[in-house]
């Protein structure tokens, strides 16, 4: 039983946390790709930017002596999302829109997004320094819920932290809201139409400039959520999300670039693959030692991939997808 609890703590919960973050990031990447047809490389840094904005707001509220029963970063999240969305619009207007107006190729926009990456990273470090910070305001602590499992014969509890719990709820709400937006609202449908066939969308009289703006607003807001959650789960640092740009893109590509639902599935897929690959199976299989013959105990560490190489997992899945099904696993399905 304890082995199962360990598995739940280490794989199920961690995987879901990571999956939520990847999924929210990948949705942004995939929407931008669907509408604007370029790989927005600076997306990770938009996440970082969003996290720092939430951090600033939380610190400001805390400094005013306001307290909440929830982590402050979550309380300020709606405001931070709005600010990040506005900044995302500004980034598009300042750096990408002029190139699009010139008819630049997607790869030029990709390179431009490196410029944006550098500027955001430079600015963040310039303002906040390159150190690591805690996302919790002073006096706050990570509450941990311990679900007692003794009724099932377990000696250890299932651990889940407060931010993790909130994270699941927030992600679920966002995914559902996005679903309704894309399938029910006029603008959401227009977004899907433009991702499907931009020329025809224009011919239909769809205000494509408006759709582009909506895309940046959604991508920016979701990036802010993902970045803040990541910072709450780990810590806040300038290269917070740059390091997960690869799994995020892998998630978007595995799900099929341009497909919002694919990005969600891709995010969880990559996250669980990573978590399972670095999971130490000995911890779960230890009871086998009792039945294994003498001298054949399981090694102390039996993980498929050493933790240092976690990144390779996303990469391997990415490459396999690109080689076998470059259009993603959902090609043919209608989204």
């Amino acid at each position: 039983m304890d082995e199962l609890i360990f598995f739940i703590n280490r794989v199920l919960i961690s995987g879901t946390v990571l999956g939520s973050i990847y999924a929210l990031g990948a949705i942004g990447v995939t929407l931008i790709f669907g509408i604007l047809r370029f790989a927005h490389f600076a997306h990770g840094d938009m996440m970082t930017m969003g996290a720092f904005i939430a951090f600033l707001l939380a610190a400001a509220l805390a400094a005013m002596g306001i307290t909440f029963p929830l982590p402050m970063a979550f309380v300020v999240l709606p405001v931070a999302m709005v600010i990040t969305a506005i900044l995302a619009l500004g980034i598009d207007k300042g750096f990408y829109a002029p190139l699009r107006a010139r008819g630049a190729k997607p790869v030029t926009l990709l390179i431009a997004s490196i410029g944006v990456t550098l500027m955001i990273q430079g600015l963040v470090r310039l303002i906040f320094g390159s150190g690591t910070r805690q996302m919790y305001v002073p006096g706050e602590s990570k509450d941990i819920f311990r679900i007692d499992m003794s009724w099932a014969g377990g000696s250890r509890p299932i651990n889940i932290t407060e931010p993790q719990l909130i994270m699941f709820v927030v992600t679920a709400i966002i995914v559902i809201a996005l679903h309704f937006f894309l399938t029910r609202s006029r603008l959401g449908k227009a977004m899907r139409a433009m991702a499907d066939n931009a020329d025809l969308a224009q011919v239909s009289g769809i205000n494509t400039a408006l759709v582009v703006r909506v895309t940046w607003v959604i991508a920016g807001a979701l990036a802010c959520v993902a970045g803040t959650m990541l910072a709450l789960d780990v810590a806040l640092m300038p290269d917070l999300a740059f390091n997960i740009v690869l799994p995020i893109f892998a998630a978007a590509i595995v799900g099929g670039l341009g497909h919002a639902y694919g990005a969600i599935v891709g995010g969880f897929l990559i996250a669980f693959a990573e978590t399972l690959a670095v999971f130490n199976w000995t911890a779960v299989l230890r009871p086998l030692n009792n039945i294994l013959p003498e001298g054949m105990e399981l090694p102390a560490n039996l993980s498929l991939v050493p933790t240092e190489y976690k990144l390779t997992v996303a990469f391997v899945i990415l490459v396999i997808t690109l080689l076998m099904r470059p259009t993603g696993i959902f090609k043919g399905a209608s989204t």
């Binding site: 750096f95 002029p98 190139l99 010139r102 630049a104 030029t108 390179i111 431009a112 490196i114 410029g115 944006v116 990456t117 550098l118 500027m119 955001i120 990273q121 430079g122 600015l123 470090r125 310039l126 320094g129 390159s130």
Partner: peptide, 23 residues
Amino acid sequence: SRALQMRVFVLGVVITIALRYAP
């Protein structure tokens, strides 16, 4: 340490300007 990061920002500005005005 902050000044050291300035160069990252400058690099970003340089490539942005280049793409815009001297692609």
